[in-house]
Simulated assay, not measured.
Amino acid sequence: MKICIVGAGAIGGYLGAKLALAGEEVTFIARGQHLEAIQNQGLQVIMADGSSHVVHPSLATSDINHAGSQDVVILAVKAQSLAAIAALSSLPEATRTRHSANAEGIAPALSSLYNPDTMLVTAQNGIPWWYFQKHGGEYEGQQIHAVDPDGIIAANIDIDRVIGCVVYPAVELQSPGVIRHIEGDRLTLGEIDNTKTERIQKLAQSFKQAGFKAPVRSKIRTEIWLKLWGNLAFNPISALTRATLEQICQYPLTRELARQMMMEAQTIAEKLGIEFGISLEQRINGTQKVGAHKTSMLQDIEAGRPTEIQAILGAVIELGKLTHIPTPYMDTVYANVKLLEKTLIG
């Protein structure tokens, strides 16, 4: 299949590299020194077992308009970049070119990538903008202001193309053109209306051929919550303390803080009909087993980049207000991360 990775950073680059190694025709949309390195030397992926692979994609560019029609588009940019990409995708080409810097150097004409059957895979952390689309129940169509404050994403991305994806691999961008895989190879997929379709089975098969575990789940929102349950606590705590996952879990005070945040989140999720298949302690212990890994939010803080705090924690706090559930622990940590972000980034 022809697959375009929009945002070929750590996660996007890793997904695209493994798909390319499996024989898929992969295009990378990237920017800056990372793009230059891929264009000049290829993308190097250092695996957890120490093996190394260099991938030369079919195309590496900063301009989506050069990519052409695709069978699959994987949106691997951070959640906070989606609105800019969605907004620009609906503008005339000349206007997109003038404003491309607002989308981290990507000229995002997403519609230029589409054929009638193109799948759009969302690979962001946190609560997705489409959470209440095709959801059913009393909150059907509810806007998530923390991740789509002006409704730009929902207005400019075709919901019928969207496939949910929960990405579990831990990876780091070691240097421009070099990605290090820490652990994990599971990508959980799901149609957002909870159906199992022929197209998603085809997508899952491509991921499996690339060496991923790619189960298709009928309740993708439950899968989102299972990962987010830990992320909403450990990512912001790591950003504030500069500690690894292992350190946070082993230190009693931060472990307890994470537990309190996760208890608040569990109450919200259950109010929305989510059933967790594991206990809270099992989820924390699973995080501890990842080891001395810096979370993506800590990596962003250290690099002076905006974080995913809105999608990972702000959106959950918003859902707490929607369901009338107080979130004092999450509120406190959220406020501190927002101030840290403002202090370091502006």
Rank of each mutant, 00 (worst) to 15 (best):
R98Q: 10
S81T: 04
K134M: 13
T118V: 15
V73T: 04
L35N: 11
V54A: 08
S89I: 02
L21I: 15
A79Y: 04
I29P: 07
G13N: 04
G68L: 01
L15M: 12
T97F: 03
A109S: 02
L59A: 12
I74E: 04
G7C: 03
Q80N: 15
Q33C: 00
P149M: 11
A30F: 08
A86V: 09
G32T: 00
P116K: 01
S81Y: 02
Q133Y: 12
R98N: 05
A60H: 07
H53Q: 14
D63H: 15
L59Y: 12
V55Q: 12
Y131W: 13
L15Y: 02
L110I: 10
E93K: 10
Q41E: 03
I106A: 04
N102R: 13
H135D: 11
S51K: 13
Y14K: 01
W129V: 07
E36H: 12
D71Q: 11
L120F: 11
V55R: 04
Y114C: 14
Q41V: 00
L15G: 00
G12V: 05
S81V: 04
D71N: 10
Q41A: 12
L15I: 15
N65I: 00
L35V: 05
A109C: 08
T95D: 09
A30K: 06
H145R: 14
Y14W: 07
V73S: 05
S90P: 05
G32K: 03
V55T: 14
S62K: 09
I29M: 08
A37P: 07
D117N: 11
G105W: 06
D49M: 02
I3V: 07
I29G: 12
Q124A: 11
L21C: 11
E36S: 13
Y114M: 14
G13R: 02
K78T: 09
H145M: 12
V6P: 05
L21N: 15
L91R: 09
L59R: 13
G13V: 11
I5P: 01
P57S: 05
G13M: 10
V55W: 11
R31D: 09
I46P: 01
G32F: 03
G9I: 08
Q80C: 08
A86E: 03
A76K: 03
G32Q: 09
L82Q: 01
L91V: 08
S51C: 13
S90W: 06
K78Q: 13
E93M: 07
A17W: 04
M119W: 04
I127T: 04
I29L: 14
A103P: 03
Y114T: 06
Y131L: 10
A146R: 05
I5T: 01
V54I: 15
Q124V: 07
A60P: 05
R98M: 05
Q143H: 15
T97G: 00
T118E: 08
